[in-house]
Amino acid sequence: MEKFETYTGVGVPLRRSNVDTDQIIPAVYLKRITKTGFEDALFAAWRNDPEFILNQDAYRNGSVLFAGPDFGTGSSREHAVWALRDYGFKAVFSSKFADIFRGNSGKQGLVTGIISDADIEKIWQALEANPGLEATVDLVAKTVAVADIRVEFEIDEYTRWRLLEGLDDIGLTLRDEQSITDFEAKREAWRPKTLPAKGA
């Protein structure tokens, strides 16, 4: 995973709330078995509409998304994050994210920053007044800036540290492998085991 410190790219105002993961990537795209190449699937249903924001020239290369509240609700599919990432998005801002989506994002290097609805509205207006305007995300300072608007965003410290360091999840945990082995030694006999298989 690449380290994330600061990033500047075209801001996209997505004036919708409750953007669930079925909208971010419809279930039909979940059938792939690769880990990349989901850029065509992002907002697939909406992209059929020529008026949709990402179909407008100024926003086509967008990489910083500003959305309404409750972004990423619904299905746990991590493909939603892959689709955003593969399209080129580096950061998403909203006043409220679904927990699973937010967890998934942190692991793929996608910044999810919380800013107030009022700030989102200000940024929407700025971007709409001047389509193609860039947004600068500074993870060190925890700020996002569009034109003369500069706001602090919320992100939990652990995820921020991981993003700043570009750290892989499993490697991090395996540093504690002895603790896992010790825990397993104490695991009670009644706890479930799938093998040997019983049933039928």
């Binding site: 746990s76 599919r77 991590e78 493909h79 994050v81 699973i100 967890g103 998934n104 692991k107 793929q108 999840d169 499993i170 991090l172 945990t173 395996l174 492998e177 896992i180 397993e184």
Partner: peptide, 16 residues
Amino acid sequence: IGTSEVEHVLATQTLP
């Protein structure tokens, strides 16, 4: 959980 976490649990049987 998401797919990264699936991989994490497969590898470590734990989850942060």
